Amino acid sequence: MAVLRAAYQRELADGTGVFFEARQHRCPWCGSARLGGWLRTTDLLQHKPGEFALDRCHDCGHVFQNPRLSERGLAFYYRDFYDGLGEERLGGVFAGRTASYRRRAESVRPHLAGPTGPAEWLDVGTGHGHFCASAGRTLPGVVFDGLDRSDGAQLAQRAGRVRHGHRGTFTDLAVRRPGSYDVVSMFHYLEHATDPQEELDAAYAVLRPGGLLVIDVPDPESRYARMLGRWWLPWLQPQHLHMAPVANMSRRLAEKGFTVLAEEHAEAHDAVDLVAAAWLALDALAPREDLPWLPEPPGAAHRAMRSATLLAGVPLLLAATLLDRVVAGPLTGRLGLANAYRLIARREAPGADRPSYTVPGYG
């Protein structure tokens, strides 16, 4: 921890402004100059220093980080989240989501050429490959590869969760392996991408004609997004750079050569909004735990106060969990509370007739 603290303090010596690009004055999705401030927040998970702003386009509804993190900023804020200090904690979280992974695979099953394959599937942003391992049991005829910018994909290959674990960017892989896959999945990946539209081009490139693209992303039009404000977990600042409404995404997929076969909301929902908001609020209220980006470690009294604060919040967390799963859960779709949406689209051959989409107020 002392070694990490010294390294973080050196990197923070110039302040957090060096982690951002210049502010954008046009929507990165539709090009409109009609932008408005949407949300200002801090890093509510790692508590690294810095403030982050989300803007919303008044024409197409796209929500995006503005100013956006630079490559240096992305490296700083991702460090010790999925790897390093956070690797073991996040690995346990992802490993325990087998039911969610199984539902994702079941959503795609009706659209495969055969009910269980055979097919070659690339999971983009695979992490440690836990989805691939679970989906492989649901779809035994499918062979899974994984791609990630971290070493997680290679760890997944060594653990036998994927056939091949590719490390690097999706756009680079698309150049090397065009037309290699029958299915590409992007489960909560596009919101992290600096240019989501380039990622869609890469998906078109690596898919064979008739192949499937599966996208899960947070839904910025969820009622929870407004109700919970900065405490809504899917805002996930500073990692989430883009939040596209479903109409925008459907239109752009059609423009890039896909036909949308299915749109799902309740099926993509993860019933954690209220308990996550309660935890984020408690964690923000409690004194900080020992983190290497803090100037010095907390003392014993500080640690005791944090433990007492979190312990006092247990009833709140239990009540929020009950509301998430028992009360709000069954009504998610009807009340517009789904925190994500899923699109399943087919890659058409060049020149094929495709449906068009019109986003209100855009195009």
Rank of each mutant, 00 (worst) to 15 (best):
Y8K: 01
L12F: 14
G17T: 08
F19C: 06
R26I: 08
P28D: 03
G36S: 04
G37F: 07
L39H: 10
R40E: 10
Q46M: 07
A53M: 07
C57K: 11
C57T: 13
H58Y: 12
G61Q: 01
V63Q: 01
F64K: 00
R68L: 06
S70P: 07
L74M: 02
R79D: 05
Y82C: 01
R89K: 09
L90C: 11
T98H: 14
R103P: 14
A105D: 04
R109W: 12
P110Q: 03
H111W: 15
H111K: 11
W121E: 02
D123V: 07
R137V: 13
F144N: 00
F144G: 02
A156F: 14
R158I: 05
G165N: 05
V175H: 06
V175G: 00
G179P: 10
S180I: 08
V183T: 05
V184L: 00
M186Y: 11
Y189C: 11
H192C: 07
A193V: 11
A193M: 11
T194Y: 15
T194K: 04
D195W: 12
P196H: 08
Q197K: 06
E198H: 15
L200S: 04
Y204G: 01
Y204S: 07
A205N: 04
G211F: 13
I215V: 12
I215P: 09
D219C: 14
S222Y: 13
R230M: 10
P234F: 09
Q239A: 00
V246R: 00
V246F: 15
V246D: 04
S250T: 07
L261D: 01
A262C: 05
A266G: 03
A271Y: 14
D273Q: 08
L274H: 13
L274R: 09
V275K: 10
W279N: 00
D283R: 07
D283T: 11
L285F: 13
L285G: 10
D290P: 13
W293P: 01
H302D: 08
A304T: 05
R306P: 06
L316A: 03
L318V: 13
L318W: 15
T321Y: 12
L322P: 10
L322G: 07
L323C: 00
V326G: 01
V326I: 10
G329F: 12
P330L: 02
L331V: 04
T332Q: 06
L337S: 02
A338I: 08
N339I: 06
R342D: 03
A349D: 13
G351M: 00
A352Q: 03
R354P: 11
P355L: 03
Y362A: 02
G363D: 04
